[in-house]
């Protein structure tokens, strides 16, 4: 199976977008080889601006470029883009609703060996809390390509969460990505898993395992965390009656929180959140860390069994 990191897909799509749209500009903060914006920089040096190791100014310059009609993609690691430069993203980008795409890589614990200081587990939470901000967490290279294109077409600030790790391509080439739309990838009436990013493939794997036990589990790709597709989320929850969220992110403020908020108001059902349990990451190989923190197909399956039991015993 082909394996490709979402950051790599991002870099490839950026080059194509650069060819198609002269208004696309790309900014980075001395990480262009890692964020994969280096390909764009090589192809369109006049439209690439390195801010150096200065993330606040990276966001500020992006805002100014957008105010002057450009479509800036600003890239660095997720921990710096959303943490260090949070207030620049808030006041210079989200507040004036400027057309900046914050495309952050190295999100989550699959950063691996660099350790907890570099593993963003709170970026979705931070970005989701900002008015005017759209938040996308693509699951693989196919979806990343489509999401980056959709972000470029969308008028307004977008946060795109990308990863370092090579991942299997799980979505077909003709996958239909629509900003703000959750997609049911697998039907199921006993329970449902809402997942995105690295956890989507694991959720599909868990559903296979559960099906063998007779628990038919729906899997929904919620790559747009904001605006959340509340209609689809509530409808799926109503049919399944028990849900699990799965994300490579803290259970506080990310996808799990978004789903819980939507369901509490629209269709309360037994729910569990799979994610980082209010903890930072640490150094290690990516898949060992995923195992250690319970971000596995088995972890998702166990959570599904528990909510399914709560539903049937309800």
């Amino acid at each position: 199976m082909t394996k490709i990191a979402t950051r790599t897909a991002y870099g490839q799509t950026l080059v194509k977008l650069g060819e198609e749209n002269p208004n696309i500009v790309v900014l980075d903060a001395d990480l262009s080889k890692s964020t994969k914006t280096a390909d764009f920089a090589k192809k369109f040096p006049e439209r690439f601006f390195n801010a150096g190791i200065a993330e606040a100014n990276l966001m500020g310059m992006s805002a100014g470029l957008a105010a002057a009609g450009k479509i800036p993609f600003a890239s660095t690691f997720a921990v710096f883009a959303t943490g260090r430069a949070f207030e620049q993203v808030r006041n210079s980008i989200a507040y004036p609703k400027l057309n900046v795409k914050v495309a952050a890589t190295h999100a989550g614990i699959t950063v691996g060996e660099d350790g907890g200081s570099h593993q963003s587990v709170e970026d979705v939470s931070l970005m989701r809390s900002l008015p005017n901000m759209t938040v996308i967490v693509p699951a693989d290279a196919v979806e990343t390509d489509k999401a980056v294109r959709a972000a470029a077409e969308h008028q307004g600030p977008v946060y795109i969460r990308l990863g370092r790790l090579d991942l299997p391509v799980i979505l077909p080439e003709d996958y239909e990505f629509k900003l703000g739309k959750a997609v049911v990838l697998r039907e199921g009436w006993d329970a449902a898993v809402f997942a995105n990013g690295t956890m989507l493939a694991l959720a599909l794997e868990a559903a296979e395992e559960l099906a063998r036990e007779g628990v038919e589990t729906a899997v929904i790709n919620v790559s747009t965390v904001k605006p959340l597709d509340t209609a689809t989320v509530a409808e799926v929850a109503r049919q399944a009656g028990a849900v699990v969220s799965a994300e490579e992110h803290s259970i506080i403020g990310g996808l799990g929180s978004a789903i819980a908020e939507a369901l509490v108001e629209n269709c309360p059902v037994p729910m569990e959140r799979v994610g980082l349990m209010d903890t930072f990451g640490e150094s290690g190989s990516p898949w060992e860390l995923m195992e250690k923190y319970g971000l596995t197909a088995a972890g998702i399956a166990a959570a599904v069994r528990r909510v399914h039991r709560r539903k049937t015993n309800g």
């Binding site: 500009v25 006049e46 439209r47 601006f49 606040a56 100014n57 966001m59 500020g60 310059m61 992006s62 805002a63 100014g64 470029l65 957008a66 105010a67 002057a68 009609g69 450009k70 800036p72 207030e87 620049q88 006041n91 210079s92 507040y95 004036p96 609703k97």
Partner: peptide
């Protein structure tokens, strides 16, 4: 800038305006 005609950049959090001005100047050069 969203509310007031003639305001070119929303500011108030110190240090951010000059950075946006740099971005605008980059766009002008480009």
């Amino acid at each position: 800038m969203k509310k007031t005609p003639g305001v070119d950049m929303s500011t108030g959090s110190l240090g951010q305006g000059i950075s946006a001005a740099v971005g605008m100047a980059l766009a002008g050069k480009l």
